[in-house]
Structure formats: C-alpha cells, structure tokens
C-alpha cells in the first residue's frame, strides 16, 4: 500500500511520512509548511480552502472539513495523455466551483465565496470550451456539435481509458 497517494506530504514537518515512498514529480512536492500555505491554501477570512488541484484530489475543498481515513492519502491522478490531462484540469475547477456551490446554498450572502465561485465557474467554462473543441462534446449545448457524423454518439465515460 505504499506506492500510491504519496504526492504531497513527504517533507512537511509533522505530517505522516511513508518510509517506502517512491519518488515523485517535483511539481507535486511540498517543500515546507510555509510553501504549503502559499501554494496549497487560499486564505479567505473565514474559509480555509484548498486550491482546486489539492481540493479535487481530496474530494473536499474545505480544509476544516477534510478528514482522512486511517493513513490513506488521496490517489494521485495523472492523465495518460494530453486529453486526460485536459479533462483533469477541467474536472478540478468544475469540482472547486461545485463544492463552493454547496456552501453558498447554505450561506447565500457570502460575497467572498461568491467571488471565488465565479472565478472557478469562469475557468470551468473556458476549459470546457477548449476541451470540447479539441476532443468533442461533453454537454449537448456544446459548439462542437456542428460536425458530421453526429459527435455526441462517441466516447462514453464508463469505458476504460487505455
């Protein structure tokens, strides 16, 4: 169980480390807790949010709600090709917007959260359009649906990505 979920904690003081940990890419590394605060966290006055990458890996944008099971770390997601990478990027910001959406349903007067939501919403729309132009439609309202044959009928998400 040591070769997974290993991307973020290794050099962080006080964090659990795994002696059998494999090497991992530099862009996932967190050098120290100060860097962690700068890179991973977004300090809003009242909300401590992960950034969209860290939040998406965890399935939770809210630092105060994040609760690990045993010592399992989030799975490290890496796209096998350009298309999968682009889909991951889109999924990250879409997820960040969604998690803020749920929060805002309860607290609809939170201006800071609305601002943050809109940043992620705009990014999502932008990445969605880019993805669809390159790889085909994700939604039926996509501008990429004006080709023949009908692009909607190809590629379903439950099939394994080789």
């Amino acid at each position: 169980m040591n070769n997974f979920n290993d991307f973020m904690y290794s050099n962080v003081p006080g964090m659990m480390t795994d002696p059998n940990m494999n090497t991992f890419d530099n862009d996932f590394m967190v050098g120290n807790s100060q860097n962690m605060n700068q890179n991973m966290n977004q300090n809003m006055d009242h909300l401590q949010l992960f950034d969209s990458y860290q939040g998406y890996m965890r399935g939770n944008m809210f630092q105060d709600l994040y609760d690990e099971y045993k010592n399992y770390k989030p799975q490290r997601l890496v796209g096998k090709d350009e298309q999968q990478e682009r889909l991951l990027e889109l999924s990250e910001v879409a997820f960040a917007a969604h998690d803020l959406n749920l929060y805002l349903d309860n607290f609809p007067n939170d201006k800071e959260a609305i601002k943050k939501f809109n940043e992620y919403r705009q990014k999502t729309n932008q990445l969605m359009e880019q993805y669809e132009n390159m790889y085909g439609p994700l939604v039926i309202s996509s501008n990429s649906l004006n080709t023949t044959p009908w692009a909607w009928v190809s590629s379903f998400p439950w099939e394994v990505n080789k």
């Binding site: 997974f4 965890r58 939770n60 609760d67 989030p74 749920l102």
Partner: peptide
Amino acid sequence: IRGPLLWLRQREIVHFAR
C-alpha cells in the same frame, strides 16, 4: 478501486457538514 472510494468517502463528509 481505493482511490475513488476515498474520494467518495470525503464527499459524504462534506455533505454531512452541509
């Protein structure tokens, strides 16, 4: 299998809090 299960588990925690 475990990666998605950990992720889904975390969603239960967020939903519970909301």
